[in-house]
């Protein structure tokens, strides 16, 4: 099982993702951070295989957190899950900062699982 940290200020998004990942049988959600600051702390304490992170959050936004996470750990695997995915500048900035992929909201289970499995293949 691959460990996933979800970072989103929305409880409902965290629940949506958790349900999708639990159904897959390949991923286990190990934590839910509500802003970029919590993402950095939880990455250090939980050591997740993948971080699914929103961009638009209070306290510290996702792109700022991504910049710090990639500086602290060049192997960190962050997938941005955001309603701003279709904004070209934001998408490009995320990739340049080291995001492994960007999933737009509203998302579908099939897309989420494909992106995460490609990024972190599980040993069956």
């Amino acid at each position: 099982m691959r460990k996933v940290l979800i970072v989103d200020d929305s409880i409902s998004v965290a629940r949506q993702l958790e349900k999708m990942l639990a159904e897959s049988g390949d991923f286990e959600v190990v934590g839910h951070g509500k802003n970029g600051m919590e993402a950095i702390k939880m990455h250090q304490s939980l050591h997740p295989d993948i971080i699914c992170m929103d961009m638009n959050m209070p306290v510290m936004d996702g792109l700022t957190a991504l910049r710090t996470l990639t500086a602290l750990d060049k192997n960190v695997k962050v997938v941005m899950v955001t309603s701003l995915g279709g904004v070209g500048d934001k998408y490009t900035e995320a990739l340049k900062l080291g995001a492994r992929n960007v999933i737009s909201k509203p998302f579908e289970q099939e897309t989420v699982l494909k992106v995460l499995r490609d990024l972190c293949p599980t040993t069956a």
């Binding site: 929305s10 409880i11 638009n56 701003l84 995915g85 279709g86 904004v87 737009s104 509203p106």
Partner: peptide, 27 residues
Amino acid sequence: VLDDTVMEFVNVVCGNIAAKVAQLGSS
């Protein structure tokens, strides 16, 4: 939780509006 879903709906709508408006040359 119920309120959060309405806020998330607004988040999804506005993010996609930002993407569409960017295609029109505004941001």
